[in-house]
């Protein structure tokens, strides 16, 4: 019998630390992305070929999307948000491969990403406004909004985590059920839908992270 989709399978231990399947899958994704990045960027020229043009198009499109959201220079956020989007796309679509479980379908991965976004929001907010200025922004527009703003910081991070985890996990769960009940080729349309859902969820997670960071930067207030 297959293990529960809500739990992570432990593959081995490194000392006291248990290494689960999502972690290994993540390492594989990291390896692929790093090697792919290295291979496509080692011979960049001023006169790009088709492959370099596509790569630059992807990077500049991500930058443009970030800039549209945060309304300021997107370069400081490119590494975080661009990596977030690329990793989410890779992770969400990795479920298409036979025998691979998407890491984002596990709660720990989604929580880790949400926690990183949560930390990044405050880091960039403090860096942009200063500690007091950033903390003061929680009391705006009225002091009475302070509890609501603080709670919203937690709840929106929680919603990020649950949304990603729920969508990916549910897709995987349904596909597993259909495979178990109907046969090998029946879940193909569902897998195509899962690809679309994975892309949409990656986009939504990244954009929401950009919105949260942009709000912490206060660019809308300055505008």
């Amino acid at each position: 019998m297959a293990s529960s989709p809500l739990t992570s399978t432990i593959l081995f231990h490194v000392g006291p630390v248990a290494v689960t399947r999502p972690v290994v899958t993540t390492w594989a994704i990291m390896l692929v992305l790093t090697c792919g990045s290295w291979s496509v960027t080692r011979r960049l020229t001023l006169h790009p070929d088709r492959r370099q043009a596509v790569l630059e198009l992807i990077v500049t499109a991500i930058m443009g999307q970030i800039e549209e959201v945060i309304r300021t220079d997107p370069r400081p956020l490119l590494a975080l948000l661009g990596s977030l989007f690329i990793f989410l796309v890779a992770a969400n679509l990795s479920g298409v491969l036979p025998g691979v479980e998407p890491p984002t379908g596990k709660l720990e991965t989604a929580a880790a990403l949400a926690m990183i976004v949560f930390a990044s929001v405050h880091f960039f907010g403090v860096r942009a406004r200063g500690a007091l200025g950033y903390l003061a922004s929680f009391a705006k527009p009225k002091m009475i909004m302070l509890p609501l703003n603080i709670s919203s910081e937690v709840t929106r991070t929680f919603s990020l985590m649950v949304r990603l985890f729920g969508n990916v996990m549910s897709g995987e769960f349904i596909i597993a059920l259909v495979v178990a009940l109907a046969g090998l080729f029946v879940p193909i349309p569902l897998m195509a839908l899962e690809i679309l859902v994975g892309l949409v969820q990656a986009y939504i997670f990244t954009i929401l992270a950009a919105v949260f960071i942009g709000a912490a930067l206060g660019t809308d207030e300055r505008d």
Binding site: W38, I86, E108
Partner: peptide
Amino acid sequence: DWSTFALQTVNFAVLVWLLHRFLYRPVLRM
């Protein structure tokens, strides 16, 4: 699983650094 949570956090942080090192920086430089 808190260890998975911690490892994934570290993994993503490392991935951010790796992509910054091997993807964004060369592309932006170009």
